[in-house]
Design a protein around this nucleic acid. Structure first.
Lengths: 342, 342
DNA sequence: TCGTTTTTCCTAATTCATAAAATAATTATT
DNA sequence: AATAATTATTTTATGAATTAGGAAAAACGA
């Protein structure tokens, strides 16, 4: 059952070296023998042992994934798991596979970088991580090609949504609807995405000669329903004038916001318009169907994959350090109708 | 930077073999040298190369995962990705890690089994797969320890929710509420879970002297919102008497069911009570909050992990071929209130 | 003290494939 | 046909660890 390259060589009356060459499509081998061997290999379904290959060649056809550094949600995180899925789909076309970077192997505790070296990963994708963790810093500064879909650092290629654009789309739509009392419920600002959206929110308000009021910008400690609910409740309590617009910085926060508004006797979208962020699959089925900023997870995952594979090949260096993927505004029922306005 | 066991040996004035023994905690080594080496290894942060280890020892500390054989959802599948996450968390404690079984490595197309052999995985978890695929059959019948959280086969250990119990809990609750026109919207019956729930539905109706009517059991081609919506619309059209209860066999189907009912002018729970299945995180925030059968993903993932690790160690053979994890009924607002009945 | 046993450590073989150097075989050139 | 140039194949070394078997050293008994 278990065959190695020597068995093949023996049966073909050739040397292992020749078999290896044929299997890797390199070197000078006559067409006859090549085809003969290829046929045989196909027949018996032989594949060279993966450990031996990476041991000798230092290539593992493997991409290390840094995932759940902030949250414990891991694979359950709706946005990131989707980005990862797309990334995975893409690299698999080229024979690569993903492995999760953990901080131990057998009995050894390891740093991310150590782990990568021990495992000989060809590259690393940081789906989500924390810029301040020494583990991450060490990894990014190493020789190993690395791409991120979440964090930004010097010498790190990043592929992510254009958060400024998202905020701009949302806020300008609100302004077009005639709304002026603009509030925002964000997730934790320790997350890069939320922080940048926060900056954008501020900046865009000022661009439009509206003053940014601290009390209208709420930070929830989570990016889920409950956080959005509580933050909104607090907002409504602490503020004299209820907002007529709330930008919820994740769809799930948006659901919490809407529920809190309803529980406080405010109607969505009649009294308050709400925009979410992400456009997770369920948002169109929610009542009211959620107006939201759509992030293109497939685009992000695939672009990250392309960039990383290019870095590994050493062919083309992506010229942009940070590649922003456009987002779009999906208008549904949680915001006032435009025609009502006109 | 890159060190091997020979470097360590040289610096310690010992042979590579001795270092290896110490690192693996086996064989006869004096306490003095053991501690001296361990201290040094700790200091320089040395870890033996993973490929070389598995090449020689045939152990990879790696579990192969069969995932998206039916759906293309992959990591985005709310239930299975969660089970996988729990599984992963558990095995990582013991130094194992997961790798996704794909059907190629480099330029070679492989069967699942071949892939496992090439990669030397120590065991396999079939999170979800299709019993009829030759790939799966070959894998299950191989020597490689395998556990599943979805499918059942001879010689395959399975850990999964008690579907009969779930259906029983749901239906008996409906009966207790005085409901007698019981309908069901299922996902595709090609999935084991849906099929078994279908059988249970039938059986339990008969146990209670109610006749099973084909028209009241609808099969949606998907397990999502839209499938549930369409199936319910069809149900209502084809049937003279609207049901007073619909058992939706996934939460997402349940959302679709409820929307369809509302669109048809039926109130939930006043006119029709609806029970979902899964208890995904969002079900409690839905309006109306969903009464549903809760599956214990953590329990399933962890138990599967324990069973698989036991099989790998060869210590204890799990005595039960199929281990059923109990489910529970979570009563919320999509079903009639009990006290209204009394 | 000498021989035996046990403990400790080393040597060498093994795992499997790849890469570079060396050799053999074939083709081309004059 | 003889030599040069190419092409095809083999040989050998290498990658980094594990393991079985053997040697040396220490411990033990008489």
């Amino acid at each position: 059952m278990k065959r190695n390259i020597y068995d093949v060589a023996r049966n073909m009356n050739l040397s292992p070296g020749t078999i290896s060459k044929i299997l890797n499509g390199k070197g000078n081998v006559s067409t006859k023998t090549r085809e003969r061997v290829l046929k045989y290999v196909e027949e018996i379904g032989f594949t060279p042992n993966s450990s031996a290959r990476t041991l000798k060649s230092k290539k593992s056809l493997t991409i290390g994934i840094v995932f759940s550094d902030i949250s414990n949600f891991g694979l359950e995180h709706p946005f990131f798991s989707s980005v990862l899925q797309q990334f995975k789909n893409y690299i698999e076309i080229f024979g690569y596979e993903i492995v999760f970077i953990v901080n131990r192997v057998g009995n050894y505790d390891l740093s991310y970088l150590k782990w990568c070296l021990v495992k000989n990963v060809d590259g690393v994708l940081i789906v989500t991580g924390n810029i301040n963790k020494p583990n991450i810093i060490e990894l990014v500064n190493s020789e190993i090609p690395t791409v991120s879909t979440d964090i930004k650092m010097d010498d790190l290629y990043s592929v992510m949504s254009d958060d400024f654009m998202g905020m701009k789309l949302g806020l300008e739509f609100a302004l077009k609807l005639g709304l002026r009392k603009l509030a925002c419920v964000s997730g934790p600002l320790t997350s890069r995405a939320f922080y940048e959206r926060y900056l954008a929110f501020k900046e865009i308000l000022e661009e439009n000669n509206l003053t940014f009021k601290e009390k209208y910008f709420r930070v929830s400690p989570t990016y889920g329903f409950t956080g959005g609910y509580n933050a909104t409740k607090e907002l409504l309590e602490e503020v004299k004038e209820a907002p007529d617009f709330i930008f919820a910085l994740s769809d799930e926060i948006a659901y919490g916001v809407i529920r809190a508004l309803e529980d406080s006797g405010l109607k969505v979208p009649e009294d308050v318009s709400v925009i979410g962020y992400d456009d997770v699959s369920f948002s169109k089925h929610f009542t009211p169907a959620l107006t939201t900023i759509r992030q293109y997870k497939k685009e992000i995952g695939e672009t990250a994959a392309k960039r990383l594979l290019a870095l590994i090949d050493g062919t083309v260096k992506p010229e942009k350090q940070v590649e922003l993927i456009p987002v779009s505004l999906v208008i549904r029922d949680s915001t006032k109708k435009v025609n009502l306005k006109q």
